[in-house]
Design a protein around this nucleic acid. Structure first.
Lengths: 156, 156
DNA sequence: TATTGTTATACTCTATAACTATA
DNA sequence: TATAGTTATAGAGTATAACAATA
């Protein structure tokens, strides 16, 4: 018997989980000095790149549930990095816009993250990193499909 | 502007997170019919492959904190899949052992997971999957190192 | 003094149901 | 009747401090 977790190490899902937990801790550490978490950073990034989008659209882009987005936007608004503006033509909706401060913090956060990314992928060539991204996309897509697994259809 | 999350997609950390969240949901779904979660499965796997190890050793193998392991072992014991036996020579410690039922459930869970893994990695060649594992290991190792980042040393 | 397992606790992330105000 | 945003809530996963029993 090799390592006690040799069986688990043979499972892609387990490896992704282990790498993700540690990588997320690094990302959090890189963002914390700017008062951001992963969730607030990613929201700020999408809104900065696509100003004016609605909360529902942002939730879909980030693959999070609408209710969970509320606190994220609240935090960004409280920090003065983003504003909710009533959307024209639909008074139920809000258009999300970054403030000047929000754009500045976004740029600083992105720079910090890119340094953290370089540390994370040290030892991987650009081609290997590219291949990693491709593999992760395939897995995300595969995992996002409906399977019908576990849906028992009575045979009569 | 391409997709609203184009910037985020350029970040390895973000891609790992997205893939991990979806993959873990699939793993949970594969384990749920057997009454297992990811945490209880991985504990059962390590103990089945390395019977007799201590809780501290198991926590280290799984990279979880000792307090969080208590409930996991409690659940496995309540399900009749594992037992705590007082360790010989050290009455503070427990040797963890799988029951017969535990070994049987482990085998069934592993088979289910391997089918789920095949679905997750559909479209990736064995070589690509191998390269993915290697890349994830490098990232896990890189992220686990101490950096000294953010430790401000007063210059005088 | 240090270690093993434990308790208590807290924080984050995620998910669902139900509400409000609009459409 | 449906949609946008919200509230309330619950469940995991993870983390730390402190305790009892033992070394």
């Amino acid at each position: 018997m090799a390592a006690p977790d040799a069986t688990l190490r043979g499972l892609t899902g387990y490896r992704i989980q282990r790498a993700a937990i540690r990588a997320m801790a690094r990302v959090n550490a890189a963002l914390a000095p700017l008062g951001l978490r992963r969730s607030t950073f990613s929201a700020l990034a999408v809104v900065s790149d696509t100003p004016g989008l609605r909360q529902t659209q942002l939730a879909e882009a980030l693959a999070i549930e609408r209710p969970n987005l509320v606190q994220i936007i609240d935090d960004l608004e409280a920090a003065g990095l983003m504003v909710r503006e009533r959307a024209e033509g639909d008074r139920r909706a809000y258009a999300l816009l970054p403030t000047e401060a929000g754009r500045a913090v976004y740029a600083r956060a992105l720079a910090r993250l890119q340094r953290a990314e370089a540390a994370l992928t040290r030892g991987l060539s650009p081609a290997e990193t590219q291949a990693l991204h491709r593999a992760l996309q395939i897995i995300e897509d595969n995992a996002g499909e409906e399977t019908g697994d576990e849906i028992e259809i009575p045979s009569a």
